[in-house]
Simulated assay, not measured.
Amino acid sequence: MRARVWGGLSAVVLGGLMVTGCGGGKDTAGGSAGGAGNTGSGAHPVTVTDCTGARTVFSAPPERIVTSNGAGLELLLRLGAGDKVIGTGFPPGRGTLPADVDAQARKVRVLSRTVIPKEKLLGSGADLYLDTFASMNMGAGMGDTPTEEEFRAAGIKHVFLKSTACAATRKSPLTDLSAVEADITTLGAVTGTSARAKELVGGMQEKLAAVRDAVGGTAAGERPTYFFFDYDAGTRQPMAVCNRQIAHAVITLAGARNVFADCDGDFRQVGWEDVIARNPDWIQLGVRTRGSEAANEKAFDAARKWLETNSATKGLKAVREGRFLRINSERTTIAGVGNADTVEEIAKALHPGKVG
């Protein structure tokens, strides 16, 4: 396969964002990714690869970054590289990001409320486009995206948050957050913020270790079953979170059993009869952030009401017993530091008294 290379004669090949291949789990964060990410030196050149193994070389940190959505934007802000971001698509609603980064996010130019139009993206002046989507099951609304040749002609290096973008092509179920941690480590190396990346990953690992110590040893048969209800994907035919998606790892780490753990891939439309047959103990009301706490609560209420009044779902065990979790979709299905917080929140709800 022809390499995608811009400058630099030699480099360390990093994992995470662009780790060679699409394997999930612990293998994703192994090898050279950890070593390079832990140096804290920000040394370049740095080489990363995409879902297919095509290589991109950074001879220096990027200076003008455009992000596809709020997930990539949040990571860059947390890493301290927010001053390099010149635009974003799918902007986060006001107040939906943590307070320490929300004000910074408001200053970033919005290139589109949804997918950035191709001509606007290519003419943005960016030298890096951080893409969260790639092979995600995003439906027909992704618009006319640039080809790799068009990115090259515009002088834009195109990289992905691989833990999300390459989910559908993984070879095995994703049961931990090492792919997310590797994304953070690699993005830190690319932007010259490796020391901060190490801090962020360390904080995630500390939270995950505490949950693992509390509930990790729970036998499979004793783990409550869990259904991620993607309310915004539509109610006529539910969208299941499958075992290659980050949400599956989040659910598993929290000491629960994803009712669609037998589904290979990232997302898949199923029937309500499939959900009824699995009769989950808990249901996450996975609505997308609406821009304010009041708007979020209204959406959560609507999702719950639908489940409680629909003839196909009102008899589910979780619905009868009122076992709902109000956690926004993005914190569960999109790569980020907040994934560890979601693990902790789910574990506390499902295993009261065990998780501090």
Rank of each mutant, 00 (worst) to 15 (best):
A210R: 14
G143S: 12
L77H: 04
V48P: 06
D264A: 15
L177C: 03
V66F: 02
I65W: 00
G7P: 08
V211F: 01
L350M: 11
A220I: 08
W6G: 09
S194F: 08
V5S: 13
L350D: 01
T164F: 14
T147P: 04
E148W: 11
L174V: 02
Y129C: 09
V275T: 08
E74S: 15
P280K: 02
A249W: 08
F324H: 09
A214K: 07
V115F: 15
T218R: 07
R331N: 11
Y231H: 11
H44P: 09
C51Q: 14
G141W: 10
A154P: 07
W282Q: 10
G315K: 15
R236P: 01
E308F: 04
T88P: 03
R278H: 05
G315N: 15
G202S: 12
D144F: 07
G15D: 14
G93N: 05
V46F: 01
G188C: 07
L73T: 05
R106G: 08
R290S: 14
G89S: 07
G255N: 06
G338E: 13
V46P: 05
A167Y: 00
R106I: 00
T114P: 02
T147D: 07
A210H: 10
V13E: 12
G80D: 05
T225I: 12
E149N: 14
I86D: 01
Q245F: 11
N296E: 09
A168M: 09
A247W: 02
V159D: 05
G291Q: 09
G24D: 00
T193L: 03
A233F: 12
H351P: 04
G192K: 02
S163M: 05
L174Y: 02
G89Q: 06
G15Y: 06
F300E: 05
D301N: 14
T147N: 07
N243F: 01
L253Y: 00
P173F: 04
A277N: 11
T88W: 03
G7W: 10
F151K: 00
I116S: 03
A29M: 10
D266F: 03
P117W: 07
A105R: 01
